[in-house]
Design a protein around this nucleic acid. Structure first.
Lengths: 212, 212
DNA sequence: TTAAAACTAAGTAAATTACGTATTTATAAA
DNA sequence: TTTATAAATACGTAATTTACTTAGTTTTAA
């Protein structure tokens, strides 16, 4: 078996330990660094680029989706395997678009994890079985698992983010230099896209999308 | 050192592995089971009661706070150490009241974890350093870290719950057999108590209180 | 270079929220 | 037992937000 070097980025020491434990038995896998935040990740990447990066998408200092994009851009040779709790197909698509080669759930076992690492190392994509099933279901049955696959535009996402930060429409208008009416329109469009009855659904959606 | 038996309840295999890895070096600590959900936890407890139970409070099938209470009630000899990401003092208090002897954050290191296990084993309480600091700050400076300690009345909580379930004021009024105006008043009172600017804060608070 | 999508904006009606005030029950204290 | 106190109930009115529609302008993609 060819040796594979692995980098880990996760803000929980426990999870890092867990990954190390899972991979310890395989001598061809060697962990070259474990970063606990976005900054540390880039510091480490500057020094050494692992073959595979196991990347938690919920880190405290940065959005995982942005992080993924940047790593993929700056270090295209590093294969990224996203590691997260979120089994929404919305996220998966987003991550894949942003350069992730694999997508694992945090309740994964070691066999799956090793399989994923070896697959992406060979240049293939690897998706968690459960995720695959969800995606298939969605495709075949046209079953939209809630509104995840609804794409919000950049502006809409921005505004949803501000709503989630408890900005009033007025404040949003001011900070984006647009009229109050425009904010209202955007907000209404977002509500329609998400099939939201009221603010509550919006906030929940913002949670789902990691804006809070 | 006296031997200590340990049970783990966490829905993430990765975290379970991490804990095992962290505790592996200490020969006086032995892990007797690892449960991945609430049901499995109780099945295991029926068979063997560990000295210390490391309990994740965010499990898929049950609320951790309820889980803690029930374990503490059914198995009073088991010392519970809560394991979570939530550093809100609100939770800590809640967990302690419900029978937890210790409270650790998930980004804890092995030294802290072992220290916590040994402390609760001796009958003492153990709180994560960061948590301790927060609690102290709150006590001394009267600094309310958001509105956790604000008590909502039963009715108010009920209504907050319905709001979080995306009921409109109208629907709430109907389902509780009270007038629309009363619902509005309750809602307003809740907002005031929680210092909420708008719906968003309410929903966030509902999240914090586990109503969603 | 078109066509489509995104961003911008407003008119008008309906719904919700803010704030003040007030009555009726429970509940605890004197 | 009477009296505070808190909780649950309810309304009037003003302010704000949301719903629904329509539409001009700018980007983006085919």
């Amino acid at each position: 078996m060819i040796p594979i070097t692995i980098g880990i980025a996760d803000d929980h020491l426990l999870v890092i330990q867990g990954i190390k434990a899972m991979l310890a038995k395989k001598s061809h896998l060697s962990i070259v660094f474990a970063a606990e935040n976005g900054k540390s990740l880039f510091d480490n990447l500057k020094i050494a680029q692992p073959d595979v990066l196991l990347l938690d998408i919920q880190m405290p200092d940065v959005s995982g989706i942005d992080l993924c994009q940047q790593v993929a851009k700056d270090y295209p040779s590093v294969k990224i395997v996203a590691l997260t709790n979120m089994d929404e197909s919305f996220y998966v698509k987003q991550m894949i678009r942003n350069g992730a080669a694999g997508y694992l759930l945090k309740n994964t076992d070691q066999f799956t994890m090793i399989e994923a690492i070896e697959e992406v190392m060979m240049g293939n994509q690897y998706l968690d079985k459960q995720i695959q099933k969800n995606l298939m279901e969605e495709m075949l049955l046209g079953k939209k698992r809630s509104a995840q696959q609804v794409m919000l535009t950049k502006r809409e996402l921005e505004i949803l983010g501000l709503i989630a930060k408890e900005f009033t429409n007025h404040e949003i208008a001011e900070s984006l230099f647009i009229s109050l009416r425009t904010v209202q329109t955007h907000r209404l469009n977002i509500s329609h896209k998400l099939n939201a009855k009221n603010m509550v659904s919006l906030v929940k959606e913002a949670y789902k999308r990691g804006l809070i």
